[in-house]
Design a protein around this nucleic acid. Sequence first.
DNA 1: CCGCGTAGAAGTGCATGCAATTCGGGCGCG
DNA 2: CGCGCCCGAATTGCATGCACTTCTACGCGG
Lengths: 252, 252
Amino acid sequence: MAPRSAGKNAESSDKVGVICRALRRAIIEQALEPGAKLPEDSLGERFGVSRTIARHALGQLAAEGLVELRRNRIAVVATPSWQEARDAFDIRIQLERLVVRQLAGKLSKSQVATLNAHVDAEDAARGGKDAVSIRLATEFHILLAHMTSSPILVRYVSEVAYRCCLTLSLYSRPHSTECAINEHRAIIAALVKGDEDKVMGLMHTHLDSVANRALVTPAPQRGRDLLDILAPYAEEGESERVVKLPKVVRAR
Amino acid sequence: MAPRSAGKNAESSDKVGVICRALRRAIIEQALEPGAKLPEDSLGERFGVSRTIARHALGQLAAEGLVELRRNRIAVVATPSWQEARDAFDIRIQLERLVVRQLAGKLSKSQVATLNAHVDAEDAARGGKDAVSIRLATEFHILLAHMTSSPILVRYVSEVAYRCCLTLSLYSRPHSTECAINEHRAIIAALVKGDEDKVMGLMHTHLDSVANRALVTPAPQRGRDLLDILAPYAEEGESERVVKLPKVVRAR
DNA sequence: CCGCGTAGAAGTGCATGCAATTCGGGCGCG
DNA sequence: CGCGCCCGAATTGCATGCACTTCTACGCGG
């Protein structure tokens, strides 16, 4: 009767949820790099379940955009393109503006304490591995989302935050998370103060700067599978991607 | 060349995708009302596949929030609370602001034509069943999202739009979609004109008014399964929902 | 007449088995 | 020496089977 955590809805109560959480964590801590293979049997064996369950878990993760599922192919950890990364951050900014707008001036003392404790933990982890810092920073934002008590907001913020986390591991060099921590403290302070506009702006610039610092190079190629890069050029039948954005649409 | 939408990623290529799309459509057209049971065998039989596949499809739909999955229980079409509905619309507004911001002044002629054709179809359906009108209106927004060529944006907008559609069927009385059509036309016009702020405002007020018109009554009980409404009161052990939002948090 | 317990039916949770497809390497040919 | 082909191993796609849980309706006692 111990681990009856909470009434999640989709994927949680059973072994599927365990696998999902484990893989999510492994992915955002870069124990599993983008492109890493995830064979169903191996997963099943590793977690002591059958392929059926592992498969189901992969399905869920694919729905979240963390893994890529190609028919009859081994599932792999997703490798978001640079543009997708940018889009993810744009979405994230909007969602988190919503979060802090709802939270401004509404935090209880215990919630503030929880947030401060988390940032302290981030601080403590500054010397350690970069991946851990990134994970903690991400979890700070998810913690905020949880405090809205809006399941939908939690779900979307979590998802998109994980995605961003994944892209960070792809495109960012091992760099400073220091200033981000200060920005987290500033956000907490502004939330307590209760100025909606202020805290929304703070969150906006915070995420925007993280994105800009991370996504410096618009060149996605990273030496990784150049074979994959050439794929769109190889297939010349049923070209939909090529004709659909004739260089105008995607400009922005 | 009609329904060959695009290379989806998670769930599309096979039978699972077929079932998902069919159920999604049935749900948003209210052929399946919120609370309707979805037994795995029946689905499997209906679509000519095994329970395994039906189960997987239900998992995907659950991840999208369209169905509810409780352990050892028959899956049911989701019944979002009033608050969840409101949250979904808030999120949707932000996402779609992003959509039209990216699209303003960037639409090709053929895209404009496609949009106009769709609105014409909406117009033509005005006499018909209410559910069809709602579906078409929803699809207009998804069509817009597609034109951004941003897979992530498409995914999230679609998901949240379907959710909103679901809540509309729950909380709104059979009422006017007429003005919504005019607003769609206005949005297209503003997109062509290219004024970002204008079109963002237009979209904002459009969705907001739809939400306000639909979610008039903060009273969620609708005569439906009052047995379900009493559920949280019945279980007095492990009360998490009750203690977690002691009327302060959820105020906003 | 109504509540209550209980057994059968219905349904889910999960593993396993088999067919189909892809992967990987060795062999033959140019 | 390089390149393409082909065959076995690896892996996925899917259905079926069995154990366990929940639902339902019947019969019994009050």
